[in-house]
Write a protein that binds this DNA or RNA. Structure first.
Lengths: 220, 220
DNA sequence: CTGATATTCTCGTGTTCACTTGAATACTTG
DNA sequence: CAAGTATTCAAGTGAACACGAGAATATCAG
């Protein structure tokens, strides 16, 4: 009887460990994080990762055999996307666990961003109340394709390269809040830094589409 | 600037991947699952795993350097436990993702438990309403130490070896519900099967202490 | 059909990992 | 202090993995 139990447990945990293995590589984690923003082709992903297309393809293959992503073809491209909302939750859990348990992550932040101006992101609840009263100018500084896939309600698409043009002659007095992909994305930081140079007070938030239920998000 | 971004992301995802690596081994997953039931010594864990103490100790060391567990000494024993509630949530997420994405897990269930009597566990909400109206005899069939660490309110400790003795001459007409460690634990199945042989109608539930907020659980 | 492009496959190499075995290190207890 | 026990360390072996480079496949446009 106990032998039966062992065989069952061996099999079950071996299956679950396949998902763990998929999460065991920095590259794959970054791929998954990128895919939370919307479906992407192998090429796009490789470009973001600064990795070779062949290598990216191999990682995607592993993610696929662990069932964390699925793919379909669009013309000559293969488009990958997360396999379901369970993957979003899984990623959120592992990054959340990392934040709360790995103090190294906090140290890395201090090392890369010693500037205290980087330190006061708008927390999720404050952002939500600002959005509810329409008391902010919310800019989405991700690439346009990700904005098109999903964006926060009321957000304006201002990809980083368009920042200067968009804010030339800016006079509005609503507070500007920039968001990007979330926790480990630096676009919003870059945007706030640039706007500060231009004398425009802006803040960033680490909240992202991942903090909203999918149904409420806008597309197009 | 993009180089800065890469260095930052390389470092961050390398850190997060440490947690992924910790989840990449069946043994370690099983250890973590066991530790959700309460603190345990290296020896106890090795016994449950049917693994060598040295090997178990090594896995625990890896889990510790990934910050998923922490340890303290009690007399001559080193007691390990989960590092915090974030680890419970992480485990729940990875197993939940496995259940919803890896159809192999469902197939394994069918293979090991073809008996349809295994198929109707009491769902969480039904269990909760039964518990609220005190309309069941809830037995905890885990080892006594785990019952002592934490158990569902109102549950009676009936470790598997005590089953026969406990139900000798049983006449109560309350429905019997057995629970154990949760999803991949077989104790409740074994209990229900034995009780059925004795002509006692009992059901199992896959709900476990992991489904209750820690504050509500009873100890001792 | 041909050329072009996107993606995957196949090796080869260096690295990391799991597990076993046997020894070493604490700590407690008499 | 000594003996016993719980735990960890260290070395060795075989398997798995990551990455790069080049070949192979597949699909679309002309």
């Amino acid at each position: 009887m106990s032998d039966d139990h062992r065989a069952w447990k061996d099999e079950v945990y071996a299956h679950v460990a396949r998902m763990g293995k998929a999460l065991a590589s920095p590259r794959r984690l970054e791929i998954l994080d990128l895919l939370t923003q919307g479906p992407k082709s192998v090429e796009q992903l490789a470009g973001e990762l600064l990795a070779s297309v062949a290598n990216t393809s191999q990682h995607l293959h592993q993610l696929k055999s662990a069932r964390l992503v699925r793919s379909h073809k669009e013309g000559t491209y293969v488009i990958y996307q997360l396999a379901g909302p369970a993957v979003d939750r899984l990623l959120e859990s592992v990054e959340e666990a990392g934040e709360s348990l790995l103090l190294e992550l906090g140290l890395a932040r201090q090392q890369y961003f010693p500037d205290p101006a980087d330190k006061d992101p708008v927390p999720l609840d404050e952002l939500q109340s600002l959005m509810a009263s329409d008391a902010l100018y919310l800019i989405d500084v991700r690439p346009p394709a990700e904005y098109a896939a999903q964006h926060l309600p009321g957000a304006v698409s201002v990809p980083l390269p368009m920042l200067a043009e968009h804010f030339r002659g800016w006079q509005d007095d609503k507070p500007v809040v920039a968001y990007c992909r979330g926790r480990y994305c630096l676009y919003a930081r870059d945007a706030v830094r640039y706007l500060a140079q231009q004398g425009i007070a802006a803040r960033r938030t680490e909240a992202s589409i991942r903090d909203w239920p999918p149904g409420v998000l806008a597309t197009g």
